[in-house]
Simulated assay, not measured.
Amino acid sequence: MVRILHSADWQMGLRAQHVAEVAREVRQARLDAARKVILAANDLLVDAVVLAGDVFEDNQVENPLVHAVVAVLAQSRAPVYVLPGNHDALTPDAVYRRAAWKERPPHVRLLDGEAPVPIPGTSAVLLAAPLRQKKGMKDPTAEWRDVPGTDAIRIGVAHGSLRIEGRHAPDDFPIAMDAATRAGLDYLALGHWHGQYIHEGRTAYAGAHEPTKFGEEGSGQALLVELSARGATPRLTPVPTGALTWRAEELNLGLGAEAEAKRLRGLLSDVAVPSRTLVRLRTTGRAAVEAEAVVNSLEEGLRGRGFLHVKVERQDTPEVQVEGRLAEIARDSTLVSALLEDLSRPLDPGVSEAGRLAARRLLSDLVMEAWR
């Protein structure tokens, strides 16, 4: 049995300009989450920790941060294997060539070559594909070949994008979907995608150990990989590691600003530690005049609860703007003009004012959608 903890995309030194006012806290959280990875590895008694690229945001990070990361990795009881990714590629100015990195303890190893690397005390070997540039069109695993007849458990470590339609770019180190099978791997540990993703049981992205932005599904965790023997199906278990919570919520103001604000307050009422939570509110739909005050009050209330970060993205359409556009369209369309005139006539018996308003709203929604 071989047990590894697979992680990637720590991106220590992340600029976090999208949440600039709390960027320092976000960077600190990435270091806190890194400690959680190593603590989990120690608790789980793994044989190795494998970091599949992008430990650092770039090769320009400052030396104190490099020392801090080395200090975290040094706490691992198991050997740690670090692969250069595209953010921290093994270029002439790479962070891994600095004295600050070279001061690391012997059990923290850089995967900077192509020769198989044995994991001490196990029957497993690592095959590494270190990146030496920011972008590339070649599959970093292309040179790996199967070794028939070997009893050694073969674990590949690479950084790039699986060649899934719509999910990779030609210069994003595209990796063949059958890379694990072609190279006779028992497991392929990948980095680059921040969400945890498992392909056909033997190929997986662990996901970033800490979220980097809103809407990043599957991050904030690592993967415990257990391999019982050569050829056995890996047992993969997610391990939570995230330090901060990023909540992305939508408010459809077309459903009523007050009702949507109440719903959102209910959704966020169970947040145990607001000071460790970032919130993004995105408004949609058609907003009545009173919606502005409701949204402002909601934002102010959340800030008052002590959330680390609150951001409102207004993507709704003010009702006055909709009505103005509808009037413009009606001037050029006899059909729309006639429909609006019909809705302005005295009400027929049995038709309520609310019904007429609903009909007008439906008409304007349909027309606006058609004329976009």
Rank of each mutant, 00 (worst) to 15 (best):
G121L: 00
G350R: 12
A68H: 15
G304C: 07
V273R: 15
R3P: 09
V225L: 05
K311Y: 08
A248N: 13
D146G: 09
L362W: 09
S352F: 11
V125S: 02
A189D: 08
A124L: 00
H168N: 07
A288D: 14
A179P: 07
N86L: 00
V273Q: 15
R235F: 10
Q315A: 12
G166R: 07
D186V: 03
Q221T: 04
V108T: 01
Q196E: 07
H192P: 03
F214I: 03
D88N: 09
A128Y: 05
A29E: 01
E258Y: 10
A158G: 12
G166A: 03
L90H: 12
S7N: 13
L362C: 07
P130I: 01
Q315V: 02
E249A: 13
A208T: 13
L302I: 00
A23P: 05
A41S: 12
L44E: 00
P234D: 14
Q315K: 15
P106L: 01
L73D: 13
D139F: 03
G301H: 14
V322H: 08
A142I: 00
P105W: 06
D342G: 08
K102H: 07
A354G: 08
T233F: 07
T91P: 04
A20I: 02
D171S: 12
T284A: 11
L268F: 13
A291F: 04
G201Y: 09
E62S: 15
E341N: 15
G350I: 08
R280A: 05
H87I: 00
L44N: 02
V157W: 14
V72F: 06
N296V: 01
L14E: 13
P118V: 01
V351M: 07
D316S: 15
A330M: 11
E313T: 14
D54R: 03
D146E: 10
G191E: 06
R132P: 01
L126M: 04
T212R: 06
K262P: 03
A330N: 10
Y96N: 09
P120Q: 04
G215C: 11
A180G: 04
G85A: 02
I155C: 06
P116M: 02
T91C: 05
A370T: 12
G53D: 11
D332I: 03
S269Y: 14
R35S: 01
R97S: 08
R202Q: 13
G218H: 09
A261G: 10
L347F: 08
R356P: 07
M12L: 14
S228P: 10
A142F: 04
R145K: 12
P274F: 11
N252A: 09
A179M: 11
R3N: 09
G350V: 07
R305P: 08
R361M: 02
P118Y: 05
K213S: 14
V320A: 15
K213A: 12
V157T: 10
E216M: 08
N42R: 06
Y197H: 13
L83D: 11
L281N: 14
H67I: 02
L31T: 01
V22M: 01
H168G: 02
S219M: 02
V147G: 06
S297V: 00
E369V: 03
T150S: 15
E210G: 07
A243N: 11
D342R: 15
A33Q: 03
V22F: 03
R280M: 06
I119T: 04
E260F: 08
G285L: 05
P148W: 13
D151E: 15
L264I: 05
D332S: 15
P148K: 12
L110E: 08
S275D: 15
H67T: 07
L335Q: 14
V273W: 12
I164Q: 13
R104G: 03
